[in-house]
Amino acid sequence: GHYRIRINGREFEIRGISEEEIRHLEEALRNGADEKILKEIVDRLRG
C-alpha cells in the first residue's frame, strides 16, 4: 500500500504498509494513542 497522511499541516507519504496495519493504527487512534502511533509509524519507516 501507498498512502498520504497529513500531520500538523505537513503531508507525508507512507509506503509499504498493509491494510491490516492500517486497521490496527485506526483502532489505536480511536483509543487515543496519538503520540505512540506516530512513533510506531516513524520507527517503521526508519526500517
Rank of each mutant, 00 (worst) to 15 (best):
residue 1 G to S: 09
residue 1 G to D: 13
residue 1 G to P: 13
residue 1 G to W: 04
residue 1 G to K: 11
residue 1 G to N: 08
residue 2 H to A: 14
residue 2 H to R: 08
residue 2 H to Y: 14
residue 2 H to G: 14
residue 2 H to T: 14
residue 3 Y to T: 02
residue 3 Y to A: 02
residue 3 Y to D: 02
residue 4 R to N: 07
residue 4 R to T: 15
residue 4 R to D: 02
residue 4 R to P: 06
residue 4 R to G: 02
residue 4 R to K: 14
residue 5 I to Q: 00
residue 5 I to A: 01
residue 5 I to D: 07
residue 5 I to W: 02
residue 5 I to T: 01
residue 5 I to P: 01
residue 5 I to L: 03
residue 5 I to M: 01
residue 6 R to P: 02
residue 6 R to G: 02
residue 6 R to I: 15
residue 6 R to W: 15
residue 6 R to F: 15
residue 7 I to D: 00
residue 7 I to H: 02
residue 7 I to T: 00
residue 7 I to K: 00
residue 7 I to R: 00
residue 7 I to Q: 00
residue 7 I to W: 07
residue 7 I to A: 01
residue 7 I to C: 05
residue 8 N to H: 05
residue 8 N to P: 00
residue 8 N to W: 05
residue 8 N to E: 06
residue 8 N to K: 03
residue 8 N to F: 11
residue 8 N to G: 08
residue 8 N to L: 05
residue 9 G to K: 02
residue 9 G to I: 01
residue 9 G to A: 01
residue 9 G to N: 05
residue 10 R to E: 15
residue 10 R to K: 13
residue 10 R to Y: 14
residue 10 R to T: 05
residue 10 R to N: 09
residue 11 E to G: 01
residue 11 E to C: 11
residue 11 E to P: 02
residue 11 E to K: 01
residue 11 E to T: 10
residue 12 F to G: 00
residue 12 F to R: 00
residue 12 F to V: 10
residue 12 F to Y: 15
residue 12 F to W: 13
residue 12 F to H: 03
residue 12 F to E: 02
residue 12 F to L: 05
residue 12 F to A: 00
residue 13 E to R: 03
residue 13 E to M: 09
residue 13 E to D: 07
residue 13 E to W: 10
residue 13 E to K: 03
residue 14 I to N: 00
residue 14 I to P: 00
residue 14 I to D: 00
residue 14 I to W: 02
residue 14 I to H: 00
residue 15 R to D: 08
residue 15 R to E: 10
residue 15 R to K: 13
residue 15 R to A: 11
residue 15 R to F: 15
residue 15 R to M: 10
residue 15 R to V: 15
residue 15 R to W: 13
residue 15 R to N: 10
residue 16 G to N: 14
residue 16 G to A: 05
residue 16 G to R: 04
residue 16 G to Y: 12
residue 16 G to T: 06
residue 16 G to L: 09
residue 17 I to L: 08
residue 17 I to G: 05
residue 17 I to K: 03
residue 17 I to C: 11
residue 17 I to Q: 02
residue 17 I to W: 05
residue 17 I to P: 03
residue 18 S to C: 06
residue 18 S to G: 08
residue 18 S to D: 05
residue 18 S to F: 03
residue 18 S to L: 03
residue 18 S to I: 03
residue 19 E to M: 11
residue 19 E to R: 12
residue 19 E to C: 08
residue 19 E to V: 12
residue 20 E to W: 11
residue 20 E to S: 11
residue 20 E to D: 06
residue 20 E to V: 08
residue 21 E to L: 04
residue 21 E to Q: 11
residue 21 E to T: 04
residue 21 E to V: 05
residue 21 E to P: 01
residue 21 E to M: 06
residue 21 E to H: 05
residue 21 E to C: 11
residue 22 I to V: 08
residue 22 I to E: 04
residue 22 I to P: 00
residue 22 I to H: 03
residue 22 I to R: 07
residue 22 I to D: 01
residue 23 R to T: 08
residue 23 R to S: 10
residue 23 R to I: 12
residue 23 R to V: 09
residue 23 R to F: 11
residue 23 R to K: 14
residue 23 R to D: 08
residue 23 R to H: 11
residue 24 H to C: 10
residue 24 H to S: 13
residue 24 H to T: 13
residue 24 H to L: 13
residue 24 H to F: 15
residue 24 H to Q: 14
residue 25 L to N: 00
residue 25 L to P: 00
residue 25 L to R: 00
residue 25 L to E: 00
residue 25 L to A: 01
residue 25 L to S: 00
residue 25 L to T: 01
residue 25 L to M: 04
residue 26 E to Y: 07
residue 26 E to Q: 08
residue 26 E to L: 09
residue 26 E to F: 05
residue 26 E to H: 05
residue 26 E to W: 06
residue 26 E to K: 07
residue 26 E to S: 05
residue 26 E to M: 08
residue 26 E to C: 04
residue 27 E to W: 11
residue 27 E to M: 09
residue 27 E to Q: 05
residue 27 E to V: 06
residue 27 E to G: 07
residue 27 E to D: 11
residue 27 E to N: 11
residue 27 E to P: 01
residue 27 E to Y: 08
residue 27 E to A: 12
residue 28 A to P: 00
residue 28 A to W: 07
residue 28 A to Q: 12
residue 28 A to F: 10
residue 29 L to G: 02
residue 29 L to A: 04
residue 29 L to K: 05
residue 29 L to W: 04
residue 29 L to D: 01
residue 29 L to C: 04
residue 29 L to Q: 07
residue 30 R to S: 13
residue 30 R to Y: 11
residue 30 R to A: 13
residue 30 R to P: 02
residue 30 R to M: 10
residue 30 R to D: 08
residue 30 R to I: 13
residue 31 N to S: 13
residue 31 N to W: 09
residue 31 N to H: 07
residue 31 N to I: 09
residue 31 N to T: 13
residue 31 N to D: 12
residue 31 N to G: 13
residue 32 G to E: 05
residue 32 G to R: 03
residue 32 G to H: 10
residue 32 G to I: 04
residue 33 A to I: 14
residue 33 A to C: 10
residue 33 A to D: 08
residue 33 A to W: 11
residue 33 A to V: 15
residue 33 A to Y: 06
residue 33 A to Q: 06
residue 33 A to F: 08
residue 34 D to M: 08
residue 34 D to H: 09
residue 34 D to N: 04
residue 34 D to V: 13
residue 34 D to C: 06
residue 34 D to P: 09
residue 34 D to W: 14
residue 35 E to T: 08
residue 35 E to C: 07
residue 35 E to A: 11
residue 35 E to W: 14
residue 35 E to Y: 11
residue 35 E to I: 08
residue 36 K to V: 09
residue 36 K to C: 05
residue 36 K to W: 06
residue 36 K to Q: 13
residue 36 K to F: 11
residue 36 K to D: 12
residue 37 I to H: 08
residue 37 I to E: 14
residue 37 I to F: 12
residue 37 I to A: 12
residue 37 I to S: 11
residue 37 I to W: 09
residue 37 I to C: 04
residue 38 L to V: 10
residue 38 L to S: 01
residue 38 L to F: 08
residue 38 L to M: 08
residue 38 L to G: 01
residue 39 K to Y: 14
residue 39 K to Q: 15
residue 39 K to W: 14
residue 39 K to C: 12
residue 40 E to K: 05
residue 40 E to V: 06
residue 40 E to Q: 06
residue 40 E to R: 03
residue 40 E to S: 10
residue 40 E to F: 08
residue 41 I to R: 01
residue 41 I to V: 07
residue 41 I to N: 01
residue 41 I to M: 07
residue 41 I to Q: 02
residue 41 I to K: 01
residue 41 I to H: 02
residue 42 V to N: 02
residue 42 V to S: 03
residue 42 V to D: 02
residue 42 V to E: 04
residue 43 D to E: 13
residue 43 D to A: 09
residue 43 D to H: 08
residue 43 D to T: 06
residue 43 D to S: 05
residue 43 D to G: 03
residue 43 D to K: 06
residue 43 D to M: 07
residue 44 R to C: 13
residue 44 R to L: 12
residue 44 R to V: 10
residue 44 R to K: 12
residue 44 R to F: 14
residue 45 L to K: 01
residue 45 L to N: 04
residue 45 L to S: 02
residue 45 L to D: 03
residue 45 L to F: 13
residue 46 R to D: 13
residue 46 R to N: 15
residue 46 R to T: 15
residue 46 R to C: 06
residue 46 R to S: 15
residue 46 R to V: 15
residue 46 R to F: 15
residue 47 G to T: 06
residue 47 G to H: 10
residue 47 G to S: 09
residue 47 G to A: 11
residue 47 G to R: 03
residue 47 G to W: 04
